[in-house]
Design a binder for these strands. Sequence first.
DNA 1: AACTTAATTAAACGTTTGTTTAATTTAAAC
DNA 2: GTTTAAATTAAACAAACGTTTAATTAAGTT
Lengths: 205, 205
Amino acid sequence: MKDKREQIIDTAMQLFAQRGFEGTSIRDIAEKASVNVAMVNYYFGTKEKLFEKIVENKSSVTRGLLDEIMNNKDLTHIKKIEAVIDSYIEKLFTHRMFHRLIQQELILNQRENLQSSIVNNFIPNVMIIKSIIESGIKQGDFKKVDIELTIATLTGTINQVLLSKKFCNRLMNKSDDYIPYEDVKFKKRVSAHLKQLMHDHLLNK
Amino acid sequence: MKDKREQIIDTAMQLFAQRGFEGTSIRDIAEKASVNVAMVNYYFGTKEKLFEKIVENKSSVTRGLLDEIMNNKDLTHIKKIEAVIDSYIEKLFTHRMFHRLIQQELILNQRENLQSSIVNNFIPNVMIIKSIIESGIKQGDFKKVDIELTIATLTGTINQVLLSKKFCNRLMNKSDDYIPYEDVKFKKRVSAHLKQLMHDHLLNK
DNA sequence: AACTTAATTAAACGTTTGTTTAATTTAAAC
DNA sequence: GTTTAAATTAAACAAACGTTTAATTAAGTT
């Protein structure tokens, strides 16, 4: 049995991701987490601080993986890009609730500090991918592409299928109750597409 | 001078797009639109109906353009794809407030009917692009790609730079007050990237 | 000019909201 | 077993919310 603090965080993240920050009341959270309403403010002070705590908590987990890929000298440039793709898909699909939450926060222009910290948290990842592509271009493995927009394509494609289940299912001709994100076959399909796309786009032939 | 009904719709769309549906109060809308609070309910009944009216209003405008492209027999397959890209960028950049609004609604899982109608509204566009790519493959102009995910890449890339100004500017190394969506050079850059990407990905060489 | 409908307003209504209080229970320390 | 602090509760609070009401003004019709 998780302790109540954790229970609140987990429940709040789910509800925030589903209904948005303003769309979720503290009473909603408390009820679903089976705790008293006052416990939320007791542990976190305010609703906004709870929100920040969620982002803070999860962000710390998602580091260091891309560094390994970049520094792995056994991999060619294109293999590194492939590893980045798989790492990204795995991470975002697994933590999709949290990912939806911060994407919403990015689109909304409320809470500037939080938005800044989210962006700042993402920039190092961008830089790593950027340096891989730059190196690939320098050494003649890759074509001279628009690096920043190529990164936008990578993340944008994943977001497009990840952020709305309904949209994804209609696009893929699946039924509404199908959950693509838990289907290994679907993950592999997205991975295969992005790898093919990057092969085509990056490699000098 | 616009009439008050229009003024309410325009203001509400802006605020909904910026702050979300629940994050925007009727009083906010009324104040910014310089009308009495009661006018919103007088014209639209409820806040939710106002929201639906906005989506309904705008959706009707955005049709018919892709059909022309598809049926234009002077264009090769790849030229059609290029035309689709430019048409999409133009449309989404111009109506970016509205686009943010419906993207938010897609991510949120509230208001199922509205979500369905948004998805339904988008599917015909998907089908047109799909049929272009299918035809291209059939006639040997295009490679056998993952059609659905290629469409996700097209829309996802645009969304990625369109939905959050702050994210876009940081990715592109621009200052925070720069508004990329009103800069023709930026539009052309996105267009050029997507065309290059689709050339690489689709064309049989 | 009288009448009718539409537009507009300020005020009020009942809920829901985030948060606080004050009292009570549980757990830990001595 | 007594003391002290932490955890938990039900109740209350003020503010903000969407919406309605009832009264007033403006516009259009006969």
